[in-house]
Design a binder for these strands. Sequence first.
DNA 1: TTGTCAACTGTCAGTGGCTGACATTAGCCT
DNA 2: AGGCTAATGTCAGCCACTGACAGTTGACAA
Lengths: 218, 218
Amino acid sequence: MATSTPHPAPAGGLRERKKQRTHDALIRAALELFTEQGYEATTVDEIAEAVDVSQRTFFRYFANKEDVTFAVQGMVEARFLDELRARPAAEAPLTALRHTVAVAWDGIGTAIASVIPVELYMRTYRMIESTPALVAVLLRRSAELEEQMARLVARREGLDVDADPRPRVLVAMFSGVMRAAGKVWSVGEDCSVDAIRELTMSYLDHIGPAIEGNWRTR
Amino acid sequence: MATSTPHPAPAGGLRERKKQRTHDALIRAALELFTEQGYEATTVDEIAEAVDVSQRTFFRYFANKEDVTFAVQGMVEARFLDELRARPAAEAPLTALRHTVAVAWDGIGTAIASVIPVELYMRTYRMIESTPALVAVLLRRSAELEEQMARLVARREGLDVDADPRPRVLVAMFSGVMRAAGKVWSVGEDCSVDAIRELTMSYLDHIGPAIEGNWRTR
DNA sequence: TTGTCAACTGTCAGTGGCTGACATTAGCCT
DNA sequence: AGGCTAATGTCAGCCACTGACAGTTGACAA
């Protein structure tokens, strides 16, 4: 109809684009339904029907119900790792992690918005935190992320992750703190991106004081 | 047949004892089958058949397949909390946690043995660590344990868990370290109770050094 | 001992997540 | 246009899990 590539033709062939559209539509429909009527109360037949594909097709895009729930979260995690990789080698490990938190969230926000409204992502996060089965999956994903972070930190310092325990210990502390902050955020009032960043930073500030012996005579 | 109570009659009525026996038999059968042929390769019909009860009865004892997998683990967690509660109030938070690790494992070992062979428990732990679906559940349980630990620590120090972040930050670090140690243990050679205790203690020693700025000029 | 009650169990039917097999459709390429 | 292949739909089936109902078996009092 138009010339070679009008303007909104980012992907390759028609087939490719169609696939991408179905993929994103399934995510949107699923998250919308999940947040409205609950995770287990939503059947994958409903999701498939909302996008007008067969149930079998849903399972060709996503291995299971959990998979579609965490599709966007996967982008966030990948983005975070990229940002960590980009930190200057001169920074001390904990400093690099801290700066990554400070910087990464803005880019993450826009990346999310290319698939679903950011507000839907926030609602999804809350739903996850209040659904035991999904909390379990979230934690396992965090553990995998943690492993990759440990490898990155070790590489920065020229260490072997399996020989020196410090990288794993450090990221264990770090992501423990991140999770604690995320949990508080998910039940709090302010559900903005700024809020989660500030909360995390504040929690990170407490690492030092927390391991000190006596809390009563600060 | 014998007099009033021969000697191995610990529980109340016959009904009670029978129930206990079925309960334990289901655990044993399940863990045996899981460790031999894999978790998802084992159907609950098989487990029920091994104990000679109906599938429906299995689900009256355990809410789901995961539940039976972590039945023994639940005892371990409860035991750990008890031991932490018993720590003298004078100890600093991290010290109390550290001493609990040092002390608790022996009592835990004998508690486990009252239900299944300790060796089966060890094999089960390894199976859990190598089964993604179960890793997820393990992590969620750890998170719940973590929450209780935070409350205990806060109470010891006369703090409000929701107001002061230090209790949660500390236990987040602590259980992150515990998990890292457990993971290494689960893939290592020595699968003894002593091994996991020593490994954990050694990892705890690295908390201080890990948060120091520069690892390269120790 | 016997009868009643309540707890425990088995059977059956059904839902929902998930998979393999096979036929059909629809973009791609010559 | 026509053949190739990826994407999809349909169907049958497994397994985890649940509600409903009926049968069995300890507990306990008369």
